[in-house]
Structure formats: C-alpha cells, structure tokens
Simulated assay, not measured.
Amino acid sequence: MTVDGTSRATLIARITHLEMNSIPPVRVPIPHGPRLAVMRAREVPLHFYRYLYEQVGKPHHWLARRNLSDDELGAILHADHTDLHILYVDGAPAGFFELNHSQAPRDAEIVYFGIVPDFQGRGLARFLLSEAIFAAWSREPERVVISTNTLDSPRALQLYQRAGFSPYAFSEEAVQPWL
C-alpha cells in the first residue's frame, strides 16, 4: 500500500539484451532545423542528472538510479569509466546517453539512452543513438551492448536493431512503477 492507501502493482519488464560486434560504416548526419549540440558532461551536477533521468525515465519506470544517495550516484557518474553526453536543442536539454566502459576492452555499454518527451517525435533519436554508438566505439571495445525492455518506448527495439544491434539474451525483471 502507498501512503494514500492505494496499491501499486509490480510491473514485469521483459528485457532484450543486444550487441553490436563492429562499428557502423557511417554516422547518422545531424538533423536539419533546430540548432543541436551533443556535449559530454564532465562532473555533471547530480541534481541535473536526476532531472534528466526522471524526464526520460519516468514514463518507462526506470529504477536503477531512482533511489540512490548522492554519494552512490556521484561514485557512478564521476567514475573514469562513465561517460555522460547530453543532447541540447536550441539550448534546452533534450536527451542523453550514458556509457559504461568498466568492462573494457571486452564491452562498452550504452547504459541509458533517451529523449525527453517534449522533444520526441522530431527525428532526434536516430541521430543521438548514432552519437552514442560512435562514442562507445571510441575506446575500441570488442563489442557494444545495450538493453531495452517492454516498458521502454515500443519503437526502441526497432531503433536499436536498425542501427545494427542484434539480440543475444533475454531476461525479466520486476519493477515498481513511478507514482
């Protein structure tokens, strides 16, 4: 039961784990129209990361970073093996991706990837995913991995597969929904 007396049903997320074993031959070009910038955020302020994480992740019930203390979150985000890149559209934060290189040289992982709802449907995801892929390959891993689940955007799996990722494993996870 929640504080207001209602119950929260646990959601079951079916997870698809995907891999890419070679770098794509070309990058997706920057879309025409608004001014775009993808910037690596070094020593990102935790409140700003939490804002991005909630904006992108809340509709999909992301949970791994939701209840971490500042010390726990800072240790992850400010580690040498973590790279955070933020997409800006006309100066406003519109999405982000986070890379984990802790398994190098074997794997580079795209841990988080997403577009803020206000900027979805503008053709930005394909471009930002391409940027994430090339940033992940920059440390020359053997493969790049990413996961998606049935609570993510229904187009995420198709987007990843069109970019060159292939499923290699499946799993399930119980998720407490955002209120």
Rank of each mutant, 00 (worst) to 15 (best):
E54H: 13
L151H: 04
H78L: 10
A125S: 14
A136T: 07
H85T: 06
Y49N: 03
V89W: 02
D152A: 08
A94P: 03
A92W: 02
L128I: 04
N100I: 07
A156K: 02
V28G: 03
I30N: 06
D83P: 01
R139N: 13
S166T: 12
L87R: 02
S138W: 00
S171H: 10
D71M: 13
T82C: 11
V111S: 11
L63I: 14
P93G: 02
L84G: 01
E140W: 12
T2P: 00
I86P: 01
A163G: 05
E43R: 13
R50W: 02
A75N: 11
V28N: 05
G5T: 06
I23P: 05
Q103Y: 14
V175N: 09
Y112Q: 06
L52W: 04
D4P: 00
G164S: 03
F119S: 06
W178Y: 06
P93H: 00
A75L: 11
H85W: 14
L77E: 03
I110V: 15
I30C: 14
I86K: 00
Q55T: 08
V175T: 07
E172C: 12
P24G: 05
P24L: 05
Y112A: 05
A9W: 07
R65T: 01
I110D: 05
T150L: 08
L77G: 01
L52E: 02
L52V: 08
E140I: 10
L63R: 14
S171V: 09
N21V: 15
S130Q: 06
L52Y: 01
L129A: 08
L157K: 14
S102T: 13
L18Y: 02
L99Q: 05
S102H: 15
L11G: 07
S147R: 11
F127D: 06
R27H: 12
L36R: 00
Y112F: 11
T148K: 02
G5V: 02
A174P: 09
Q120P: 03
D107S: 12
F170I: 12
A174L: 14
G123Y: 07
Q103F: 14
R162A: 12
P141C: 10
H78N: 14
H61T: 09
G74P: 00
E54A: 15
I146N: 04
L46P: 04
V116G: 03
S138E: 04
R27F: 00
V26N: 15
P59E: 11
D107M: 09
H78C: 08
